[in-house]
Design a protein around this nucleic acid. Structure first.
Lengths: 192, 192
DNA sequence: ATGTTATTTGACCGTCCATTCTAGATAGAG
DNA sequence: CTCTATCTAGAATGGACGGTCAAATAACAT
């Protein structure tokens, strides 16, 4: 046996950054070899082919987001406060995204859907999970009396899911902080 | 002189469809030559290089949308009705998008921004125009007494801009009509 | 008819692509 | 300390890429 000379975790993180910035097609294996500073063959031996590597990077992105949206939603305290915090976090993140990389999942959705089955699965799962977490948080909020009784928690959750993806997409355009801030504050006003 | 043997307008439309479906990087000139059914050199002579062709396709997409969002907003009748019609049109369009191509401008934003300057310009202009048209429509609506006085028309316009892009992005995922319909109906409820 | 000019055709260019192979280095097992 | 499995670096592979070219061709003006 022999131990690897590089840290596969750090290498995957570096690949993630490059894919995130440039997308799948525009990133070549040569780019990755240069950026990760490891041999070409080591890259293939460790992560498989280009698509395998991309999927691993995308999965890592989904798992390692900090804080994870689901975690924000399950924080102690009033559920509605958590939902508002989530929207505010997404907005702040979009505004602070000075390199305008946007969200890697949004980028992946636009570039690879619907043709790429593996990416489709990952994104469907991700969005369904977010919609589900938002729905149950809003149901809790209704139970806590923080949501007007005539509001449909699931419809509201779906609305927020769509709006948040919009935020992350628009943030790739001209960095107009006021636009994103205004948009988020209007969306929040729907939560009463 | 000699007349062209193909219709450049039809060819550009075919190129548009291919770029729309696959994105910029994933579409090769060979793919285009095959699809447009014209010679390689004719393609270059008529439209310039790949990036030129893409820009022309993207501009054509923006100009030829039917109905144009701006036109919906300037229809006769109450301004708020026009705004609601616009949101409903985007939602219906997203739901009816069975091939899940999404919106070519959204796809371009996710794939090419912020690195591509020409695409950036086109999209900034497009979004600014939509935001502007929405803002003035909502100001009109306020003047017509259809918008509660405490609502900020520009913030509302920004919100709708972001939400509509979210709609078009999410529609590339699993075609869940109920999700998009619920999201749109919640957004509409913000318009009073 | 004929000259002129633009378009078409299909071969062609050099470069870059993802992937594999070969050869040599190195660390753990015995 | 040797052996050998697995690592590394880098050359090599064949194909695809964006882009160009010269010759053949076809429509116009004259």
């Amino acid at each position: 046996m022999r131990t690897k000379e590089f840290d596969p975790d750090a290498a995957l993180q570096a690949a993630l950054e490059l894919f995130w910035e440039r997308g799948y097609e525009a990133t070549s294996m040569a780019d990755l070899v240069e950026r990760l500073n490891i041999g070409r063959a080591s890259l293939y031996a460790t992560f498989g082919n280009k698509h395998d590597l991309y999927m691993k990077a995308l999965e890592r992105y989904r798992e390692n987001r900090n804080p994870a949206p689901i975690d924000i939603l399950s924080r102690p305290g009033p559920a509605l406060t958590s939902v508002r915090a989530l929207v505010e976090f997404y907005a702040a993140d979009a505004i602070a995204d000075s390199r305008r990389r946007g969200c890697m999942i949004v980028n992946a959705a636009a570039e690879m859907l619907p043709a790429d089955a593996a990416v489709s699965r990952l994104i469907d799962t991700n969005w369904a999970a977010l919609e589900g977490a938002l729905t149950s948080a809003l149901i809790r909020a209704a139970g806590e009396g923080d949501l007007p009784a005539d509001r449909d928690p699931r419809a509201l959750a779906r609305f927020l899911l769509v709006f948040l993806q919009g935020l992350r997409l628009v943030s790739k355009g001209s960095a107009d902080a006021a636009r994103l801030r205004d948009a988020a504050s209007q969306a929040l006003s729907l939560l009463g």
